[in-house]
Design a protein around this nucleic acid. Structure first.
Lengths: 269, 269
DNA sequence: CTGGTGTCTCCCCCAGGGGGAGAGTCCAGA
DNA sequence: TCTGGACTCTCCCCCTGGGGGAGACACCAG
């Protein structure tokens, strides 16, 4: 007869674990002294303990270990073990996905388009803001831009105009839209008013050409961000570097598209 | 201001989980009503909640999520994320090993030697048993066999003789050794006595030739068993199918070697 | 004002252990 | 036979990241 300590040293299972296996009906001591409660094992139980140890090393749940030990037919045992194998392989796939996802987060894949991560500071601008249906965007845009120009004057070197597009605009076809022009001291005139744009981290790419083709660039940027960065809710930002106000040649137009992200890596190639 | 229920629907995080994140200091509500205890969130907190959600999907521990959110520099964040990546890859390796180990358990690799899994029933035999030093095995064996033959007569069709070798014999050079011959009614004479051999599951292979070369076969069988089955403590068994008693041609000798295992698969090719 | 729905805190549950307290037991040496 | 040290017992709390449910308030529209 072996005490629990001796049995523990022989099987490399901790005393605590042996007690738990006893409670769980996995490995009953050969004898339990009724008065002292001391557990006594026999050398015959070492093999069973070893089998349990091996199965636990393979992460087989205790309940399954119990059933495997209880199964009399090798076929039943094989079935239980292969059940566990299936679970383990599913787990393996899940972890593999997480690993590659993390890896892309740290070293994003080269995009088919040039993407840059940029920290946009808080800034106060002259802006027009409205709740708009997506089919009305074109006309609303022209009107808002005209009002901005009227309020600020046509020429400025404070920077190009820009816009903020609520996600609902794309999802529900209806949402908030904000058009702005940078201005050191934004006036309040008509619908134009000073607005503080919050600081934000953006994944930025530049769309070339007419704005009608922008949805393709949007799709590319969007799928890149979902795969390679931590997306964050918030309005998409556009900045009109070169537009119809600058030249009639639509192939020369340049629109920056900025997608809000949570920044993990410092920079992108 | 959003109630916890609204915020839960917006972020796809359960109310319970949001409360836990609050307790854990991961995501503090913008306002907690002092009298009612109600938590109130703002839309600004949705991005943070989304980042937490993504990181948790990637199994980043809550403590790390907290540190990632707290880190101001992208570099620090990247360091924390890559720490997690390392852990996950280690986990991946571990699981991979477990999977292939289980797979071998279910479909053992073809062995360089022929291995068969066999259930040996309990049997009572005529046996001589002793504690022996390994260098004395040869002489002890000859004497014991002579005594068995004297007790049972030289001819029998009850089956070939066999032996049980305690593991300590190989490990410490000293251990119990048992030599037997099957017998329907085992006599008691001199050192010969009836012994009940317990039932056991064995991985069995056959060694060809002189017993001096058996250690190689032992090694092969042993490593096969460790890799492809669940080893179990217990004496190794030999059975002398063809031996010096049958023929002088040592190349014709056949010794079965049986290694105790816990049986998972039904059979081996 | 009232009822339904939302939210609060508190406790228990899962797996598979680990840490530690306080009390009782075993056994060898004096 | 006693004593002291090593061993073992049970019981409770802790970790991971949630989920279930009870009972008591809070909120808001009719």
């Amino acid at each position: 007869m072996l005490t629990i300590g001796e049995f523990s040293r022989l099987t490399h299972l901790s005393i605590r674990t042996l007690r738990r296996y006893h409670e769980g009906g996995l490995l009953e001591p050969e004898l339990v002294d009724a008065s002292s409660g001391y557990r006594y094992y026999t050398a015959d139980q070492i093999p069973t303990a070893q089998v349990i140890h091996r199965l636990r090393e393979l992460d087989v749940p205790l309940a399954d270990v119990r059933r495997i030990l209880g199964a009399s037919e090798p076929d039943q045992r094989a079935a239980l073990v292969s059940e566990h194998l299936v679970r383990l392989e599913a787990e393996l796939d899940r972890t593999r996905v997480a690993v590659s996802s993390l890896r892309r987060l740290l070293a994003p894949e080269p995009a088919p388009l040039q993407v840059e991560l940029r920290a946009e500071p808080e800034v106060t601008v002259a802006a027009v803001e409205d709740e708009v249906d997506s089919e009305d965007v074109g006309t609303w845009f022209a009107g808002a831009m005209a009002e901005l120009d009227a309020a600020l004057g046509p020429v400025t070197d404070a920077g190009p105009p820009g816009g903020l597009y609520d996600n609902e605009l794309f999802e529900n076809g209806h949402g908030r839209l904000l058009l702005y022009r940078p201005s050191p001291e934004p006036p309040q005139r008509g619908r134009v008013r000073p607005v503080r744009l919050p600081a934000v981290e953006l994944a930025v790419t530049t769309h070339h050409g007419d704005h009608d083709g922008a949805d393709v660039t949007y799709g590319q940027l969007g799928s890149w961000v979902v795969a390679n960065a931590l997306t964050v809710a918030g309005p998409v930002r556009e900045r009109y570097l070169v537009g119809p106000r600058d030249t009639d040649d639509s192939t020369a137009w340049r629109t920056e598209i900025g997608w809000p992200v949570f920044r993990v890596t410092t920079d992108l190639r």
